[in-house]
């Protein structure tokens, strides 16, 4: 008999299917599109889930909406204080805006931090090999936002592509997770998965790496751990 377990072997082992996730969108009132509308568009564009900054918990058929929060701080102490606050505790995914080298090295070792974002605005080499190794050890991801590639022109976009290529070379060496986000504040900023692949190819990301990055939010919020006996 043809069952799901026969057809798709991963069902038999209880492994979750990989969800294609847009790692950050900023819905209304920060942007011009509501969360429900952005979720509707994301489902049409081929995403299985989205992370909404500041909001979450909405039910949209066929799409999971996760709640995200962004922490902007200047010191590790400030980050630790904020991640233990009520807003960060309610969030499914905690993002921290990247800063200088010492700040980035420090935040990747904070347990509650899931993703380092805004890496394109940080100085060159702000995310270095030490931070990369630490991020890999603590399973902290680095976010690659499509918004600057789409919106910037000229030298600004060239600089963003250089940063992303640099991050990609570190990722290939140290193996920390990457996430891909549209960073959209409007439905006009959301792009189909196929276009995301094309945009990521601009800085040398392969199709396999893009697929893995799109699915890494699921692994961050539910990391693979050894089986525990619950009594």
């Amino acid at each position: 008999m043809q069952t799901a377990a026969n057809k798709y072997p991963f069902f038999a082992y209880g492994l979750p299917t990989m969800k294609i996730t847009d790692a950050s969108v900023c819905p209304y009132p920060d942007g011009d599109s509501t969360l429900a509308r952005m979720a509707l568009e994301a489902a049409e564009l081929g995403f299985d889930s989205i992370v909404a900054i500041g909001e979450g918990g909405h039910r949209v058929p066929g799409l999971e909406v996760l709640r995200g929060t962004v922490i902007s701080a200047s010191s590790q102490k400030d980050v630790i204080r904020q991640v233990r606050g009520p807003v960060a505790r309610r969030a499914d995914v905690v993002f921290v805006n990247a800063g200088d080298t010492s700040f980035n090295r420090a935040i990747v070792s904070v347990k509650e931090v899931h993703v380092v974002r805004n890496i394109h605005n940080a100085r060159r080499n702000a995310f270095d090999h030490v931070a990369a190794r630490s991020a890999a050890e603590h399973s902290v991801a680095v976010d690659v936002s499509m918004a600057p590639i789409i919106q910037y022109r000229g030298t600004r976009r060239q600089r963003v592509l250089q940063r992303y290529a640099d991050i990609l070379s570190l990722q290939r060496r140290y193996g920390f997770p990457l996430t891909i986000s549209s960073g959209a504040c409007s439905i006009l900023g959301q792009r189909p998965v196929r276009d995301v692949r094309g945009l990521c190819a601009l800085f040398g990301m392969t199709g396999g790496e893009v697929s893995e990055a799109l699915g890494s939010i699921g692994r961050l919020i539910e990391p693979e751990r050894p089986v525990r006996v619950v009594r």
Binding site: I150, L188, R191
Partner: peptide, 19 residues
């Protein structure tokens, strides 16, 4: 197609092209 994804305005108005 990748270039079409980077279109953000048509004329003076904000727009997007989705392949």
């Amino acid at each position: 197609a990748t270039a079409l994804a980077t279109v953000t305005a048509i004329g003076d108005e904000q727009a997007a092209l989705r392949t």
